[in-house]
């Protein structure tokens, strides 16, 4: 029996931003009572890995760096069918920017790799809180993995030849790429649909052991590269966007009918920018 791919999926626990609000006076994020979720983009990565496991066997390990409460994200991932979960948690990791985050995650993945060689690392395209899309490339670079970002499909993988073929969203088109394993894939949104966890998986996830590593256990070599200390970027201030001075001027028409409102609106817009007429190029229909 041939052995399936050994896969690691990085997931991040994020506040459900649909339910986040900003305190109008202090300009701080009101997190109290806001539920946390698995970063939605990471579910596409997890599902892609689970599909490869369905097809080829192998193992899916989910990995997160975060505070102890991030175990709930890992449990959810186990409920979806991941085999094993690792929480990377240490006060030295606090305040990490993307460079320090990719350093800590890389230490943990390298430790896994030393136990059993890792073939594929998956991340989401980006998160909904930090929203930088930089952690995936950071890990790839540090580990020397072939970097495949914005992947929409994995049409083929050949474990014997150690080759993988992917579709990558590029500017103005889709690249069909072939590269060697091991590689890092950041999965594009809407590239698949997360399965419902099976009942046994959901039950298992509630009791499953979560492996927890601090910096030392993860084999972190240089604490100076972790957390706030290892982060070249610093947030120097947080502030609310300037509201626009004026509100919209409402278009009025004597009879208030849609037709007169439309005519009045057009005159108003053209009064502001007469050049608009020149860029209006109707698709030629016989008028």
């Amino acid at each position: 029996m041939s052995q399936g791919p050994n896969m690691v999926v990085c997931i991040k626990q994020v506040p459900d931003s649909a339910q986040i609000s900003v305190h109008p006076v202090t300009n701080t994020i009101m997190r109290q009572g806001v539920p946390t979720i698995i970063n939605p983009y990471d579910l596409f990565a997890l599902e892609a890995a689970l599909r490869l496991r369905d097809q080829l066997g192998g193992k899916v390990t989910v990995l997160t760096m975060g505070p102890p409460m991030a175990v709930s994200a890992l449990r959810k991932a186990l409920g979806h069918g991941a085999d094993e979960a690792i929480l990377l948690s240490d006060r030295f990791f606090a305040g990490a920017d993307t460079l320090a985050t990719s350093y800590a995650l890389t230490s943990a993945i390298q430790k896994l790799d030393s136990q059993h060689p890792v073939d594929l690392v998956f991340t989401g395209k980006q998160t909904i809180d930090g929203d930088t899309a930089q952690v995936g490339p950071g890990i790839a670079r540090r580990m020397g993995l072939n970097q495949l970002t914005y992947v929409s499909a994995i049409p083929s993988i050949d474990l014997e030849a150690r080759e993988i073929c992917v579709h990558r969203r590029a500017e103005g088109g889709v690249q069909v790429l072939k590269t060697k394993l091991p590689c890092l894939i950041t999965m594009l949104e809407a590239s698949n649909e997360m399965r419902r966890g099976s009942l046994p998986d959901v039950l298992r996830s509630e009791r499953a052991e979560i492996i927890t590593w601090n910096a030392e256990a993860a084999g972190v070599e240089d604490l100076g590269k972790c957390g706030m200390k290892g982060s070249p970027t610093k947030v120097s201030k947080v502030f609310a966007p300037q509201p626009r001075a004026e509100k919209a001027k409402m278009i009025k028409a004597d009879d208030g009918s849609p037709a007169s409102l439309a005519t009045a609106a057009i005159e108003t817009m053209l009064a502001e920018d007469a050049g608009l007429l020149k860029v209006m190029a109707p698709q030629s229909t016989s008028a």
């Binding site: 609000s21 300009n27 994020i29 120097s236 947080v238 502030f239 609310a240």
Partner: peptide, 11 residues
């Protein structure tokens, strides 16, 4: 940050 509800300056 947070979808545009706040801005942050990074150095």
């Amino acid at each position: 940050t947070f979808g545009g509800s706040l801005l942050c300056t990074i150095m």
